[in-house]
């Protein structure tokens, strides 16, 4: 065990402070009695109550969730298929180019992605709104899913697929009964990643949404320009809570599975 030196402690404290102080402040001030964000005037939950009556904010939240669910699901399907194509058909012409193109959107500035999609929608005369927003989210989250699933597929032992076919499973049955269950954890993390990316996207959403399809980040951003209200702090605190819960559940589930596996292994050797 390494001894805790002062230097170590200091770097940990500063590091975490740097990361979390803003968030902690935000959470604290969401419980502020006063309307002035920076002046503490006692504990209160009234901003949370008020939230429930802010129809515009609730609408935005609902849009965000719907866009997130639909786009993450579609992006997961498309991204998984893309990853399969990239890892399976290794011998077609221009493969390098294609796999490079899958990664490109990851590093593309969002402004450019957003702008180009806006131009596309205008060019084909699509009215901007909920569906253009969803389409845009599918597009930019898909490549993240593809990357996550692809890295899993690279370590996938293809002989189990051959074994399945050898035992009479058609390619479709093989995919559904063998490939998909084995890569399911990666597909699921791809989905979670896509969902969270969609949840907090601001730039691309700004370019591609239209009237009646305002997402929560857009709403928050536009309100903040008129001044930070404790109400906004409350919304953000709830968002933080949801994300933290998600992370917690995911890690508990995987930890459980790990413990279960170790226990099974011990049982196997005990016999």
């Amino acid at each position: 065990m390494v001894k805790w030196s002062r230097f170590n402690i200091a770097s940990i404290v500063f590091g975490f402070a740097f990361l979390y102080l803003p968030i902690v402040l935000l959470v604290i001030f969401s419980f502020n009695e006063s309307k002035l964000v920076t002046v503490w005037a006692g504990f209160s939950t009234k901003w949370y109550v008020q939230l429930l009556h802010n129809q515009a904010l609730l609408d935005a939240a609902w849009v965000t969730v719907r866009v997130g669910l639909i786009s993450a699901t579609v992006a997961t399907v498309l991204g998984t298929l893309a990853a399969l194509a990239m890892t399976r058909y290794t011998r077609f012409r221009g493969r390098m180019l294609f796999s490079g193109m899958i990664y490109a959107p990851l590093v593309m500035p969002e402004v450019i992605t957003g702008l180009s999609m806006l131009l596309l929608f205008v060019a084909i005369g699509l009215d901007r709104g909920f569906w253009t927003l969803t389409l845009a989210h599918i597009t930019f989250t898909m490549c993240f899913v593809a990357v996550v699933v692809q890295s899993r597929l690279l370590s996938f032992d293809r002989s189990i697929e051959e074994a399945a076919m050898d035992l009479g499973a058609t390619p479709v049955a093989t995919f559904l009964q063998v490939t998909l269950p084995v890569i399911a954890p990666a597909v699921f993390s791809g989905w979670v990643l896509a969902f969270t990316l969609s949840l907090d996207d601001l730039v691309i959403s700004n370019f591609t949404s239209g009237p009646g399809a305002t997402t929560l980040p857009m709403k928050i951003y536009s309100q903040v320009r008129l001044g930070v209200t404790p109400e906004i702090n409350a919304v953000c605190t709830i968002l933080i809570g949801i994300v933290a819960m998600g992370v917690l559940i995911a890690s508990v589930v995987s930890r459980r599975r790990e413990i279960q596996r170790v226990r099974d292994e011990q049982a196997a050797f005990a016999l």
């Binding site: 032992d157 002989s159 189990i160 051959e162 074994a163 399945a164 076919m165 050898d166 035992l167 009479g168 499973a169 058609t170 390619p171 009964q177 063998v178 269950p181 084995v182």
Partner: peptide
């Protein structure tokens, strides 16, 4: 392969990792 009356035992075994022994055998 899935229409050939031939079965193979693989050099690497290629068992289905997500299935029990029972289900592995029942698969075909």
């Amino acid at each position: 392969p899935y229409r050939r009356p031939v079965n193979m035992m693989f050099q690497s075994y290629a068992l289905f990792p997500h299935m029990t022994v029972e289900n592995n055998i029942a698969f075909g």
